[in-house]
Amino acid sequence: MANATQSPLPNSTWKPRIVAFFCNWCTYTAADLAGVSRMKHFSNVRIIRLMCSGRVDPQFVLEALAKGADAVLIGGCHPNDCHYVEGNYKCLRRYQMLKRMIADMGIEPERLRLEWISAAEGEKLKRVVNEMVETITKLGPLGLPQKFEQWDREMEEFANHVAARDAAAGGGCAEHGTNTQPLETAHA
């Protein structure tokens, strides 16, 4: 949806948008338990149910951020407790990879969080959600869609700039040309 990427409604104070991927057996159930126990928490976290944290495709996380989420929370069973034996380990590995990836993109590490929350830990669920909302409120909006637009614009300008300068220098590639030094940046 195109409008998902627009800035917040006029007059409304900004609130973090957090997408959560919870496994069916532990963390989703913990969220149910928090409900049954009426443990009040912030409403900014939107839960998507998956059968196991192992189903969390890194692409889901990136998609959520790209679609305007300010942060992503992944919830699974504690180590050794995964309903499917070791889906959570797989998830942990992907999470570590994702952490590096988003760091490379200049995104604060706090925007991605993985928590093991068992079906009995309604209290922990509440705590994690509240902590996360507070942290992200402090960090402010991520605005990846807007950033993407801006990056696209910059890349375009840069490409134009390089093209113009290459044209002025008589063209040619860095490896063969005479004017190597400034061109290195374009190849980096």
Binding site: A4, P8, E63, K67
Partner: peptide, 13 residues
């Protein structure tokens, strides 16, 4: 993906 898009609906936070 359609759920991700859905929960992030504008104006609903």
């Amino acid at each position: 993906y359609s759920e991700i898009d859905g929960v992030l609906a504008e104006g609903l936070f």
